[in-house]
Amino acid sequence: MARRALLLVLAGALGAAAAAVGREPGLAVPGAAAWAARHPDPRVVDPASEAALAAQVDGERRRDAMLLLAALGAGCLVVAAAPRVASWTGGAPSAVLLCGSLGLGLLQLGRSAAGQAAGMRDGSWSVADETLERIAPDQAATMRQWRETIAPGDAVILVGSDPWLYDLVVWALHPRALYPMLLDIRPSTSVEQVQRGARALPVGRDHAVRWVVDLGVLQPDGPASHPPLIRVDP
């Protein structure tokens, strides 16, 4: 009886703690910011992007803490309601952890199933062989057009650093030879200037035709003086 009461009290406390954590915008490691200020990492070159990552990680830590506390609370409730569960696991603490884990797992299983059902309705979940429409509905037609234009034996100089567009082009243009360049071209650069710059590059010269793909223009913020796909040579 005393154990059951203790479990119920714990469940309440853990539930309240989960709710309190859930109200926070993020959960930072105590002293982490001061530590980083006193002892800067030798590799940090872009403090703004590191701060953005820290905010994202703090948010994920808050979510994990909330899920952890809520799952522990739910586990306490289950073991209080059905004490025989503890005999399967050899003790109440592991029974609480098992029940909390199962509850959280079932919740996430349900979320995944619901996400797949929603995806089936809106077309983002499918076992069809065509995937470009699901990956990038806005760029799928362009990618298919490029596949028609660029022969499989041609070389493609890939310019720009957007990781999502980079992956898209890598996926869509296989098996063409890709030569990534970690540089950005100003949108105001003319076609002739891009071609002149690309012709000076040593990469891909053993291919019959070279092209430049500019990811920065593929999804432009404003008007650009050159298209995203430019034939370089011959």
Binding site: E60, R63, D64, A65, L67, L68, A71, L72, G75, T89, G90, P93, S94, L97, L98, G100, S101, L102, L104, G105, Q108
Partner: peptide, 14 residues
């Protein structure tokens, strides 16, 4: 918890 639920804690406890 969003990747493993409470499995690591359960294993450590056991």
């Amino acid at each position: 918890a969003s990747s493993f639920a409470l499995l690591p804690l359960l294993l450590i406890a056991v």
